[in-house]
Design a protein around this nucleic acid. Structure first.
Lengths: 121, 121, 121, 121
DNA sequence: GTGGTCTAGACCACA
DNA sequence: GTGGTCTAGACCACG
């Protein structure tokens, strides 16, 4: 993983973990790497990982068992809802951006189709 | 205009001006407000406007006539290209985000259509 | 029993046992479960139970017969005093908290009465 | 201000600021001390203050203007609601604690009245 | 000047 | 072993 300069590293890690969750790479209830191990793997300071983990916990995506570690929520609804939220956010942002440069709904769909066809050819 | 906390204000201003350009609200060759007037109008520190203007000039969207002020480029290609760039960026970001949460091209088009129909109904 | 994340589990257990004592669920002189059995029953690491028992003993609420187990004190004064202490602590904390947000004694009684009536209705 | 060992310092600061807000010592829209000044005044590391300020912002009690400072929310409802929340929490905790040691609603009111009279005499 | 982030290293309570 | 907190000091973007 290499880091973007614009977004804080700890948020990039938060998002990275969210994506792996949504793609089902990690099971519900599974344990995350310990802060120290994750820090080693990701080549960042343990405090940075700790901050990312705390943010995930604040969003109810993980929870911690004292003295044991950090675990992914066992509530499958949370994961499903997370996927929906990420998709909604992506779509709303896209639509808003296209509207701001003068595309209406019909036009933005057309443009997107053309773009995908170009890319795929 | 009210400001978002996450994005730097000067970039929000840059984008705002870009959008007005692309939508044709501002004509090519037109003069921008002076830094001081713009700052008064936007309730912002003049330094912030100066930085936004500087950024616009760096992107060749505006140019400065010494002692006279800041003007929008008269090159219509610049404007057209700007619109294309903004659309491309929006589309690529969207596609990338959807891929990251497990949608393929077909699925993301479908999801977007559904989303627009829901919204539009 | 399910555990709160903020308070250490061993203290939650200490309090739980105190409350059962005060409510008379456990008789004076009765034997507590062995550390291992208690740990099994409470789904907790035996070390955690050991620490809780140690804390109870430190507070003279239990005592240990070597090689036999942990027993609740037979001194009824201890139990009575415990109840008083818990009540005093609860009341003092409450009064202090209400003072800190600007309620005087009269007002906090009134607020508490209103709150209980609302709840009870 | 001297610090309790049990609760994290940054949370003690958060609560301290909440109380001053509720008591009206600070006006809505007023600027908090800068992180560095507050740190000097409170004899703690600036990072600790930063964490407290971030928590206050997360709870919508303050907001920050980039490059300018941290400000108390101008929304007076927020402050009023904050006072209500703090009172509710104090009362609920108190009632719950008293119930756990065997007082019913009537008894806990009586006990509280007696306690206040003793204290006041 | 302001707050935000990151690193480094330390200490602690908990299980 | 685990996560949580705190300090110290640094660098950065922003206004």
């Amino acid at each position: 993983m290499h880091y973007n300069n614009k977004e804080p590293i700890y948020l990039q890690i938060v998002n990275h973990i969210k994506y792996t969750l949504v793609l089902g790479t990690l099971e519900g209830g599974a344990q995350l790497l310990s802060i120290r191990d994750q820090a080693g793997k990701m080549q960042v300071n343990p405090n940075t990982i700790a901050r990312a983990y705390q943010e995930l916990e604040r969003q109810r995506i993980t929870f911690t068992k004292k003295g044991l570690g950090t675990y992914i929520t066992e509530n499958k609804n949370t994961i499903n809802q997370l996927k929906k939220e990420l998709a909604q956010t992506a779509m709303n942002t896209f639509i808003e951006n296209m509207h701001k440069i003068g595309f209406n709904n019909q036009e933005l769909i057309t443009a997107l189709n053309n773009h995908l066809n170009k890319e795929g050819s």
